[in-house]
Design a protein around this nucleic acid. Structure first.
Lengths: 232, 232
DNA sequence: ACAAGTTGTTACAAATTTTTGACAGCGGTC
DNA sequence: GACCGCTGTCAAAAATTTGTAACAACTTGT
Protein backbone atom coordinates (compact mmCIF):
# COMPACT_ATOMS: atom_id res chain seq x y z
CA UNK A 1 0.00 0.00 0.00
CA UNK A 2 0.96 3.64 -0.21
CA UNK A 3 3.71 4.36 2.20
CA UNK A 4 3.37 8.11 1.85
CA UNK A 5 4.24 9.48 5.26
CA UNK A 6 2.06 12.21 6.57
CA UNK A 7 3.33 15.75 6.57
CA UNK A 8 3.17 17.61 9.84
CA UNK A 9 3.48 21.34 10.19
CA UNK A 10 5.03 22.48 13.45
CA UNK A 11 4.16 26.03 14.41
CA UNK A 12 6.33 27.00 17.35
CA UNK A 13 8.24 30.18 18.08
CA UNK A 14 11.03 28.71 20.14
CA UNK A 15 13.66 27.23 17.87
CA UNK A 16 15.01 24.60 20.27
CA UNK A 17 11.61 23.13 20.90
CA UNK A 18 10.90 23.26 17.23
CA UNK A 19 14.01 21.26 16.50
CA UNK A 20 13.23 18.80 19.19
CA UNK A 21 9.79 18.20 17.79
CA UNK A 22 11.15 17.88 14.31
CA UNK A 23 13.62 15.29 15.47
CA UNK A 24 11.02 13.31 17.37
CA UNK A 25 8.49 13.42 14.57
CA UNK A 26 10.95 12.37 11.95
CA UNK A 27 12.02 9.47 14.05
CA UNK A 28 8.38 8.47 14.12
CA UNK A 29 8.45 8.51 10.36
CA UNK A 30 6.56 11.68 9.69
CA UNK A 31 7.60 14.35 7.28
CA UNK A 32 7.99 17.70 8.97
CA UNK A 33 7.77 21.30 7.90
CA UNK A 34 8.14 24.17 10.30
CA UNK A 35 7.06 27.71 10.97
CA UNK A 36 8.04 30.16 13.69
CA UNK A 37 4.87 32.17 13.66
CA UNK A 38 1.38 32.37 12.24
CA UNK A 39 2.34 34.28 9.11
CA UNK A 40 4.95 31.74 8.20
CA UNK A 41 2.49 29.04 9.08
CA UNK A 42 0.01 30.35 6.57
CA UNK A 43 2.64 30.15 3.87
CA UNK A 44 3.59 26.59 4.70
CA UNK A 45 -0.01 25.53 4.74
CA UNK A 46 -0.65 27.16 1.39
CA UNK A 47 2.18 25.53 -0.45
CA UNK A 48 2.72 22.26 1.39
CA UNK A 49 -0.75 21.27 2.50
CA UNK A 50 0.20 19.49 5.70
CA UNK A 51 -1.88 16.59 6.97
CA UNK A 52 -1.79 17.82 10.52
CA UNK A 53 -0.71 20.93 12.40
CA UNK A 54 1.07 20.83 15.71
CA UNK A 55 0.86 24.26 17.23
CA UNK A 56 2.18 25.93 20.31
CA UNK A 57 -0.39 27.62 22.36
CA UNK A 58 1.63 30.59 23.43
CA UNK A 59 3.18 32.53 20.64
CA UNK A 60 4.12 36.14 20.25
CA UNK A 61 1.93 38.08 17.90
CA UNK A 62 -1.06 36.12 16.72
CA UNK A 63 -1.53 33.52 19.41
CA UNK A 64 -2.04 29.86 18.74
CA UNK A 65 -5.68 30.11 19.66
CA UNK A 66 -6.37 32.87 17.20
CA UNK A 67 -4.47 31.17 14.47
CA UNK A 68 -6.31 27.93 15.09
CA UNK A 69 -9.61 29.70 15.03
CA UNK A 70 -8.66 31.38 11.80
CA UNK A 71 -7.81 28.05 10.23
CA UNK A 72 -10.97 26.42 11.44
CA UNK A 73 -13.04 29.20 9.99
CA UNK A 74 -11.48 28.90 6.60
CA UNK A 75 -13.17 26.26 4.44
CA UNK A 76 -9.89 25.39 2.77
CA UNK A 77 -8.11 24.55 5.98
CA UNK A 78 -11.05 23.58 8.12
CA UNK A 79 -10.39 19.91 7.77
CA UNK A 80 -6.74 19.90 8.69
CA UNK A 81 -6.53 18.54 12.20
CA UNK A 82 -4.80 20.70 14.78
CA UNK A 83 -3.12 19.56 17.94
CA UNK A 84 -2.27 22.22 20.48
CA UNK A 85 0.80 22.17 22.63
CA UNK A 86 0.22 24.04 25.86
CA UNK A 87 3.05 25.27 28.02
CA UNK A 88 1.41 24.98 31.36
CA UNK A 89 -1.49 23.03 32.55
CA UNK A 90 -3.73 26.01 32.50
CA UNK A 91 -7.07 24.32 32.36
CA UNK A 92 -8.90 27.32 31.11
CA UNK A 93 -6.63 27.57 28.15
CA UNK A 94 -7.12 23.94 27.38
CA UNK A 95 -10.79 24.34 27.32
CA UNK A 96 -10.67 27.37 25.12
CA UNK A 97 -8.56 25.38 22.77
CA UNK A 98 -11.13 22.68 22.47
CA UNK A 99 -13.66 25.34 21.96
CA UNK A 100 -11.68 26.66 19.06
CA UNK A 101 -12.09 23.36 17.36
CA UNK A 102 -8.74 21.80 17.93
CA UNK A 103 -8.73 18.10 17.60
CA UNK A 104 -6.60 17.41 20.61
CA UNK A 105 -4.00 18.95 22.82
CA UNK A 106 -0.93 17.89 24.74
CA UNK A 107 0.64 19.80 27.56
CA UNK A 108 4.31 20.26 28.20
CA UNK A 109 6.10 18.41 29.46
CA UNK A 110 4.75 15.59 27.39
CA UNK A 111 6.27 12.28 26.50
CA UNK A 112 7.06 11.68 22.89
CA UNK A 113 5.32 8.36 22.74
CA UNK A 114 2.23 10.09 23.99
CA UNK A 115 2.55 12.82 21.44
CA UNK A 116 3.01 10.35 18.63
CA UNK A 117 0.08 8.31 19.85
CA UNK A 118 -2.14 11.36 19.88
CA UNK A 119 -1.05 12.36 16.42
CA UNK A 120 -1.74 8.93 15.06
CA UNK A 121 -5.11 8.80 16.71
CA UNK A 122 -6.14 12.13 15.27
CA UNK A 123 -4.84 11.29 11.82
CA UNK A 124 -6.59 7.97 11.81
CA UNK A 125 -9.81 9.54 12.83
CA UNK A 126 -9.86 11.92 9.92
CA UNK A 127 -8.32 10.09 7.04
CA UNK A 128 -11.14 9.14 4.71
CA UNK A 129 -14.18 11.24 4.15
CA UNK A 130 -11.98 14.24 4.49
CA UNK A 131 -14.16 16.15 2.15
CA UNK A 132 -17.54 15.35 3.56
CA UNK A 133 -19.22 16.91 0.59
CA UNK A 134 -20.55 15.05 -2.36
CA UNK A 135 -19.33 16.10 -5.75
CA UNK A 136 -22.06 16.31 -8.33
CA UNK A 137 -22.11 16.87 -12.05
CA UNK A 138 -25.28 16.70 -14.05
CA UNK A 139 -26.89 13.86 -12.17
CA UNK A 140 -23.70 12.05 -11.39
CA UNK A 141 -22.92 12.12 -7.70
CA UNK A 142 -19.74 11.04 -6.02
CA UNK A 143 -19.97 10.89 -2.27
CA UNK A 144 -16.64 10.68 -0.53
CA UNK A 145 -17.95 9.84 2.92
CA UNK A 146 -19.91 6.82 1.87
CA UNK A 147 -17.66 6.20 -1.08
CA UNK A 148 -20.66 5.77 -3.26
CA UNK A 149 -21.54 6.83 -6.76
CA UNK A 150 -25.01 7.36 -8.10
CA UNK A 151 -26.21 8.31 -11.55
CA UNK A 152 -29.63 9.96 -11.49
CA UNK A 153 -30.18 8.26 -8.19
CA UNK A 154 -29.25 4.81 -9.45
CA UNK A 155 -26.25 3.28 -7.75
CA UNK A 156 -23.18 2.73 -9.89
CA UNK A 157 -21.02 -0.21 -9.00
CA UNK A 158 -17.30 0.54 -9.15
CA UNK A 159 -14.13 -1.18 -8.11
CA UNK A 160 -11.68 0.68 -5.87
CA UNK A 161 -9.49 1.97 -8.67
CA UNK A 162 -12.45 2.93 -10.80
CA UNK A 163 -13.85 4.87 -7.88
CA UNK A 164 -10.61 6.71 -7.28
CA UNK A 165 -10.27 7.45 -10.95
CA UNK A 166 -13.75 8.86 -11.17
CA UNK A 167 -13.33 10.84 -7.99
CA UNK A 168 -10.16 12.33 -9.37
CA UNK A 169 -11.72 13.29 -12.66
CA UNK A 170 -14.89 14.65 -11.16
CA UNK A 171 -12.90 16.90 -8.90
CA UNK A 172 -10.68 18.06 -11.76
CA UNK A 173 -13.07 18.72 -14.56
CA UNK A 174 -12.39 20.30 -17.90
CA UNK A 175 -8.75 19.68 -17.86
CA UNK A 176 -6.61 17.26 -19.78
CA UNK A 177 -4.39 14.86 -17.90
CA UNK A 178 -1.69 12.71 -19.41
CA UNK A 179 -1.61 9.06 -18.49
CA UNK A 180 1.46 9.75 -16.46
CA UNK A 181 -0.30 12.43 -14.46
CA UNK A 182 -3.25 10.20 -13.87
CA UNK A 183 -0.99 7.43 -12.65
CA UNK A 184 0.69 9.83 -10.27
CA UNK A 185 -2.51 11.15 -8.83
CA UNK A 186 -4.68 8.08 -8.79
CA UNK A 187 -2.24 5.24 -8.37
CA UNK A 188 0.23 7.31 -6.41
CA UNK A 189 3.82 8.03 -7.16
CA UNK A 190 6.29 5.25 -6.67
CA UNK A 191 4.03 2.71 -8.27
CA UNK A 192 5.24 1.34 -11.51
CA UNK A 193 2.59 0.27 -13.93
CA UNK A 194 2.30 0.56 -17.68
CA UNK A 195 0.70 3.70 -18.97
CA UNK A 196 -1.69 1.64 -20.99
CA UNK A 197 -3.17 0.42 -17.73
CA UNK A 198 -4.87 3.78 -17.50
CA UNK A 199 -6.63 3.09 -20.77
CA UNK A 200 -7.96 -0.17 -19.49
CA UNK A 201 -9.30 1.39 -16.34
CA UNK A 202 -10.80 4.23 -18.29
CA UNK A 203 -12.49 1.59 -20.35
CA UNK A 204 -13.83 -0.12 -17.24
CA UNK A 205 -15.08 3.13 -15.83
CA UNK A 206 -16.80 4.03 -19.07
CA UNK A 207 -18.42 0.63 -19.16
CA UNK A 208 -19.79 1.11 -15.66
CA UNK A 209 -21.07 4.56 -16.53
CA UNK A 210 -22.47 3.56 -19.91
CA UNK A 211 -25.83 2.14 -18.82
CA UNK A 212 -26.53 5.46 -17.17
CA UNK A 213 -25.43 7.50 -20.12
CA UNK A 214 -22.52 9.17 -18.44
CA UNK A 215 -19.71 7.48 -20.29
CA UNK A 216 -19.37 10.30 -22.78
CA UNK A 217 -18.12 12.59 -20.04
CA UNK A 218 -14.80 10.83 -20.06
CA UNK A 219 -13.23 12.18 -23.19
CA UNK A 220 -10.18 11.03 -25.05
CA UNK A 221 -7.74 13.71 -26.08
CA UNK A 222 -5.73 12.05 -28.75
CA UNK A 223 -2.00 12.37 -28.37
CA UNK A 224 -2.30 13.63 -24.82
CA UNK A 225 -4.57 11.78 -22.45
CA UNK A 226 -8.05 12.12 -21.02
CA UNK A 227 -10.41 14.79 -19.84
CA UNK A 228 -13.58 14.75 -17.82
CA UNK A 229 -16.18 17.24 -18.83
CA UNK A 230 -19.88 17.82 -18.95
CA UNK A 231 -19.58 19.55 -22.30
CA UNK A 232 -19.32 17.56 -25.42
CA UNK B 1 -32.83 30.95 29.05
CA UNK B 2 -34.76 30.62 32.23
CA UNK B 3 -33.64 29.62 35.64
CA UNK B 4 -34.83 26.14 34.91
CA UNK B 5 -31.40 24.94 33.89
CA UNK B 6 -30.59 21.55 35.18
CA UNK B 7 -27.99 21.20 37.88
CA UNK B 8 -25.23 18.75 37.27
CA UNK B 9 -22.93 17.39 39.92
CA UNK B 10 -19.47 16.52 38.71
CA UNK B 11 -17.67 14.01 40.90
CA UNK B 12 -14.09 13.83 39.75
CA UNK B 13 -10.87 13.76 41.68
CA UNK B 14 -8.63 15.44 39.14
CA UNK B 15 -9.03 19.19 39.32
CA UNK B 16 -8.08 19.99 35.72
CA UNK B 17 -10.63 17.60 34.30
CA UNK B 18 -13.18 18.88 36.76
CA UNK B 19 -12.62 22.42 35.60
CA UNK B 20 -12.76 21.40 32.00
CA UNK B 21 -16.06 19.67 32.51
CA UNK B 22 -17.44 22.59 34.45
CA UNK B 23 -16.55 24.96 31.69
CA UNK B 24 -18.02 22.77 28.99
CA UNK B 25 -21.20 22.10 30.87
CA UNK B 26 -21.74 25.74 31.66
CA UNK B 27 -21.30 26.60 28.05
CA UNK B 28 -24.03 24.12 27.33
CA UNK B 29 -26.20 26.02 29.72
CA UNK B 30 -26.19 23.70 32.67
CA UNK B 31 -25.57 24.71 36.22
CA UNK B 32 -22.67 22.89 37.74
CA UNK B 33 -21.60 21.89 41.20
CA UNK B 34 -18.51 19.91 41.92
CA UNK B 35 -17.02 17.38 44.27
CA UNK B 36 -13.57 15.87 44.44
CA UNK B 37 -14.58 12.67 46.16
CA UNK B 38 -17.50 10.63 47.37
CA UNK B 39 -17.79 12.28 50.78
CA UNK B 40 -17.96 15.70 49.24
CA UNK B 41 -20.37 14.32 46.68
CA UNK B 42 -22.79 13.19 49.39
CA UNK B 43 -22.80 16.69 50.80
CA UNK B 44 -23.51 18.31 47.46
CA UNK B 45 -26.29 15.90 46.76
CA UNK B 46 -27.84 16.50 50.13
CA UNK B 47 -27.95 20.24 49.91
CA UNK B 48 -28.19 20.92 46.19
CA UNK B 49 -30.19 17.99 44.83
CA UNK B 50 -28.61 17.81 41.42
CA UNK B 51 -30.61 16.64 38.41
CA UNK B 52 -27.81 14.47 37.16
CA UNK B 53 -24.48 13.18 38.35
CA UNK B 54 -21.45 12.89 36.14
CA UNK B 55 -18.94 10.67 37.84
CA UNK B 56 -15.48 9.39 37.13
CA UNK B 57 -15.31 5.72 37.83
CA UNK B 58 -11.69 5.74 38.88
CA UNK B 59 -11.35 7.65 42.07
CA UNK B 60 -9.23 7.22 45.13
CA UNK B 61 -11.05 6.07 48.22
CA UNK B 62 -14.59 5.04 47.54
CA UNK B 63 -14.56 4.29 43.84
CA UNK B 64 -17.10 5.63 41.42
CA UNK B 65 -18.72 2.23 41.17
CA UNK B 66 -19.21 1.91 44.90
CA UNK B 67 -20.49 5.42 45.22
CA UNK B 68 -22.91 4.91 42.38
CA UNK B 69 -24.15 1.68 43.88
CA UNK B 70 -24.64 3.41 47.18
CA UNK B 71 -26.69 6.13 45.53
CA UNK B 72 -28.78 3.68 43.59
CA UNK B 73 -29.55 1.74 46.72
CA UNK B 74 -30.72 4.79 48.57
CA UNK B 75 -34.40 5.54 47.91
CA UNK B 76 -33.74 9.27 48.19
CA UNK B 77 -31.15 9.36 45.46
CA UNK B 78 -32.19 6.33 43.45
CA UNK B 79 -33.81 8.38 40.76
CA UNK B 80 -30.99 10.77 40.09
CA UNK B 81 -29.48 9.68 36.81
CA UNK B 82 -25.79 8.88 36.84
CA UNK B 83 -23.42 9.00 33.91
CA UNK B 84 -20.10 7.26 34.38
CA UNK B 85 -16.94 8.54 32.83
CA UNK B 86 -14.61 5.66 32.09
CA UNK B 87 -11.04 5.85 30.97
CA UNK B 88 -11.46 3.47 28.10
CA UNK B 89 -14.10 1.85 26.05
CA UNK B 90 -13.26 -1.59 27.36
CA UNK B 91 -13.92 -0.42 30.84
CA UNK B 92 -17.44 0.38 29.90
CA UNK B 93 -18.20 -3.29 29.78
CA UNK B 94 -16.57 -3.93 33.08
CA UNK B 95 -18.48 -1.18 34.75
CA UNK B 96 -21.64 -2.26 33.07
CA UNK B 97 -20.94 -5.77 34.22
CA UNK B 98 -20.88 -4.63 37.81
CA UNK B 99 -24.47 -3.81 37.33
CA UNK B 100 -24.47 -0.60 39.21
CA UNK B 101 -27.42 0.79 37.38
CA UNK B 102 -25.85 3.80 35.76
CA UNK B 103 -27.90 5.46 33.12
CA UNK B 104 -25.15 5.88 30.61
CA UNK B 105 -21.43 5.82 30.11
CA UNK B 106 -18.97 7.95 28.25
CA UNK B 107 -15.41 6.94 27.75
CA UNK B 108 -12.41 9.18 27.54
CA UNK B 109 -11.46 10.75 25.34
CA UNK B 110 -14.92 12.00 24.58
CA UNK B 111 -16.01 14.97 22.59
CA UNK B 112 -17.98 17.63 24.35
CA UNK B 113 -20.84 17.57 21.89
CA UNK B 114 -21.14 13.86 22.52
CA UNK B 115 -21.10 14.32 26.25
CA UNK B 116 -23.74 17.01 26.11
CA UNK B 117 -25.86 14.87 23.85
CA UNK B 118 -25.67 11.97 26.28
CA UNK B 119 -26.57 14.16 29.18
CA UNK B 120 -29.55 15.57 27.38
CA UNK B 121 -30.65 12.13 26.37
CA UNK B 122 -30.48 10.84 29.91
CA UNK B 123 -32.25 13.86 31.29
CA UNK B 124 -34.98 13.55 28.71
CA UNK B 125 -35.39 9.89 29.45
CA UNK B 126 -35.71 10.43 33.15
CA UNK B 127 -38.24 13.12 32.48
CA UNK B 128 -41.42 11.11 32.24
CA UNK B 129 -42.87 11.00 28.77
CA UNK B 130 -39.76 10.30 26.82
CA UNK B 131 -38.03 7.12 26.01
CA UNK B 132 -35.42 8.38 23.73
CA UNK B 133 -32.16 6.96 22.71
CA UNK B 134 -33.32 4.04 20.73
CA UNK B 135 -31.92 4.19 17.26
CA UNK B 136 -34.11 2.72 14.59
CA UNK B 137 -33.53 1.95 10.95
CA UNK B 138 -36.07 0.20 8.83
CA UNK B 139 -37.34 -2.17 11.47
CA UNK B 140 -34.04 -2.57 13.22
CA UNK B 141 -34.06 -1.04 16.67
CA UNK B 142 -31.07 -0.51 18.88
CA UNK B 143 -31.91 0.55 22.38
CA UNK B 144 -28.98 2.01 24.21
CA UNK B 145 -30.60 2.05 27.61
CA UNK B 146 -31.47 -1.61 27.72
CA UNK B 147 -28.71 -2.53 25.35
CA UNK B 148 -31.16 -4.60 23.42
CA UNK B 149 -31.68 -5.03 19.72
CA UNK B 150 -34.85 -6.02 17.95
CA UNK B 151 -35.53 -6.70 14.28
CA UNK B 152 -39.17 -6.19 13.34
CA UNK B 153 -40.00 -6.78 16.96
CA UNK B 154 -38.05 -10.01 17.21
CA UNK B 155 -35.19 -9.91 19.67
CA UNK B 156 -31.70 -10.23 18.23
CA UNK B 157 -29.14 -11.92 20.41
CA UNK B 158 -25.78 -10.18 20.39
CA UNK B 159 -22.58 -10.37 22.37
CA UNK B 160 -21.16 -7.19 23.90
CA UNK B 161 -18.77 -6.46 21.08
CA UNK B 162 -21.33 -7.20 18.44
CA UNK B 163 -23.70 -4.85 20.19
CA UNK B 164 -21.17 -2.02 20.31
CA UNK B 165 -20.25 -2.60 16.71
CA UNK B 166 -23.85 -2.44 15.60
CA UNK B 167 -24.55 0.56 17.77
CA UNK B 168 -21.60 2.36 16.26
CA UNK B 169 -22.63 1.60 12.73
CA UNK B 170 -26.27 2.42 13.25
CA UNK B 171 -25.34 5.78 14.63
CA UNK B 172 -22.93 6.47 11.78
CA UNK B 173 -24.79 5.40 8.72
CA UNK B 174 -23.84 5.84 5.14
CA UNK B 175 -20.23 6.37 5.75
CA UNK B 176 -17.24 4.18 5.14
CA UNK B 177 -14.99 3.32 8.03
CA UNK B 178 -11.64 1.63 7.77
CA UNK B 179 -10.93 -1.27 10.05
CA UNK B 180 -8.52 0.94 11.91
CA UNK B 181 -11.19 3.53 12.56
CA UNK B 182 -13.64 0.90 13.70
CA UNK B 183 -11.08 -0.46 16.12
CA UNK B 184 -10.48 3.02 17.46
CA UNK B 185 -14.12 3.77 17.98
CA UNK B 186 -15.52 0.42 19.00
CA UNK B 187 -12.64 -1.27 20.74
CA UNK B 188 -11.12 1.97 21.93
CA UNK B 189 -7.75 3.47 21.23
CA UNK B 190 -4.79 1.87 22.87
CA UNK B 191 -6.10 -1.61 22.34
CA UNK B 192 -4.00 -3.74 20.14
CA UNK B 193 -5.85 -6.28 18.12
CA UNK B 194 -5.46 -7.40 14.56
CA UNK B 195 -7.44 -5.52 11.96
CA UNK B 196 -8.83 -8.82 10.75
CA UNK B 197 -10.62 -9.11 14.04
CA UNK B 198 -13.00 -6.52 12.75
CA UNK B 199 -13.87 -8.79 9.84
CA UNK B 200 -14.62 -11.63 12.16
CA UNK B 201 -16.92 -9.57 14.31
CA UNK B 202 -18.60 -8.17 11.26
CA UNK B 203 -19.15 -11.73 10.22
CA UNK B 204 -20.67 -12.60 13.59
CA UNK B 205 -22.89 -9.58 13.51
CA UNK B 206 -24.07 -10.39 10.01
CA UNK B 207 -24.79 -13.93 11.06
CA UNK B 208 -26.92 -12.70 13.94
CA UNK B 209 -28.77 -10.29 11.70
CA UNK B 210 -29.20 -12.72 8.85
CA UNK B 211 -32.29 -14.60 10.04
CA UNK B 212 -34.04 -11.26 10.21
CA UNK B 213 -32.88 -10.15 6.80
CA UNK B 214 -30.83 -7.22 8.00
CA UNK B 215 -27.40 -8.56 7.25
CA UNK B 216 -27.22 -6.79 3.90
CA UNK B 217 -27.11 -3.45 5.62
CA UNK B 218 -23.55 -4.06 6.64
CA UNK B 219 -21.75 -3.50 3.41
CA UNK B 220 -18.22 -4.30 2.43
CA UNK B 221 -16.34 -1.54 0.68
CA UNK B 222 -13.52 -3.42 -0.90
CA UNK B 223 -10.13 -1.88 -0.35
CA UNK B 224 -11.39 0.40 2.37
CA UNK B 225 -13.58 -1.06 5.05
CA UNK B 226 -17.25 -1.30 5.90
CA UNK B 227 -20.34 0.81 5.68
CA UNK B 228 -23.75 0.56 7.25
CA UNK B 229 -26.61 1.67 5.11
CA UNK B 230 -30.21 1.10 4.39
CA UNK B 231 -29.65 1.64 0.70
CA UNK B 232 -28.33 -1.09 -1.47
C1' DA C 1 -5.19 3.82 -50.03
C1' DC C 2 -1.22 3.05 -47.15
C1' DA C 3 1.73 3.17 -43.24
C1' DA C 4 2.51 4.56 -38.66
C1' DG C 5 1.00 5.78 -34.46
C1' DT C 6 -2.88 5.83 -30.94
C1' DT C 7 -6.62 4.16 -28.57
C1' DG C 8 -10.46 0.61 -27.59
C1' DT C 9 -11.61 -4.04 -26.26
C1' DT C 10 -11.22 -8.49 -24.46
C1' DA C 11 -9.33 -12.33 -22.14
C1' DC C 12 -6.63 -14.24 -18.59
C1' DA C 13 -3.45 -15.28 -14.93
C1' DA C 14 -1.63 -13.22 -10.87
C1' DA C 15 -2.28 -10.62 -6.86
C1' DT C 16 -5.05 -8.85 -3.40
C1' DT C 17 -8.84 -8.71 -0.29
C1' DT C 18 -12.64 -10.66 2.12
C1' DT C 19 -15.26 -14.54 3.98
C1' DT C 20 -15.66 -18.34 6.77
C1' DG C 21 -14.98 -22.16 9.91
C1' DA C 22 -12.00 -23.90 13.45
C1' DC C 23 -9.56 -23.46 17.53
C1' DA C 24 -7.62 -22.12 21.95
C1' DG C 25 -7.79 -19.04 25.91
C1' DC C 26 -10.48 -16.65 29.43
C1' DG C 27 -13.65 -15.61 32.98
C1' DG C 28 -17.79 -16.74 34.99
C1' DT C 29 -21.56 -20.33 36.48
C1' DC C 30 -23.51 -24.53 37.83
C1' DG D 1 -14.12 -29.64 37.64
C1' DA D 2 -17.06 -29.36 33.50
C1' DC D 3 -19.65 -26.19 30.86
C1' DC D 4 -20.75 -22.06 28.49
C1' DG D 5 -20.53 -17.87 26.02
C1' DC D 6 -17.33 -14.54 24.17
C1' DT D 7 -12.86 -13.19 21.97
C1' DG D 8 -8.93 -12.90 19.17
C1' DT D 9 -6.09 -15.26 15.77
C1' DC D 10 -5.20 -18.23 11.95
C1' DA D 11 -5.38 -20.23 7.56
C1' DA D 12 -7.83 -22.15 3.83
C1' DA D 13 -11.45 -21.03 0.53
C1' DA D 14 -13.95 -17.76 -2.13
C1' DA D 15 -14.49 -13.56 -4.36
C1' DT D 16 -12.93 -9.60 -6.59
C1' DT D 17 -9.47 -6.68 -8.62
C1' DT D 18 -5.73 -5.59 -11.38
C1' DG D 19 -2.00 -5.39 -14.80
C1' DT D 20 -0.68 -6.88 -19.23
C1' DA D 21 -0.59 -8.81 -23.66
C1' DA D 22 -2.72 -9.31 -27.98
C1' DC D 23 -5.42 -7.73 -31.44
C1' DA D 24 -9.11 -4.78 -33.45
C1' DA D 25 -10.40 -0.20 -34.59
C1' DC D 26 -9.48 4.26 -35.40
C1' DT D 27 -6.78 8.70 -36.72
C1' DT D 28 -3.59 11.18 -39.12
C1' DG D 29 -0.35 12.47 -42.57
C1' DT D 30 1.40 11.28 -47.07
Amino acid sequence: MGMSNKLILVVEDEAPIREMLKFALERADFRVTMAGNAAEGRLRIADQQPDLILMDWMMPGVSGVDFARELKNNPTTRDVPIIMVTARVEEEDKVRGLNVGCDDYVSKPFSFPELIARINAVLRRSTPGFDEETLAVAGLEVNAASQRVTAKGEPVRLGPTEYRLLHFFVSHQDRVYTREQVLDRVWGQSVYVEERTVDVHIRRLRKALEPHGFDAMIQTVRGTGYRFSEKV
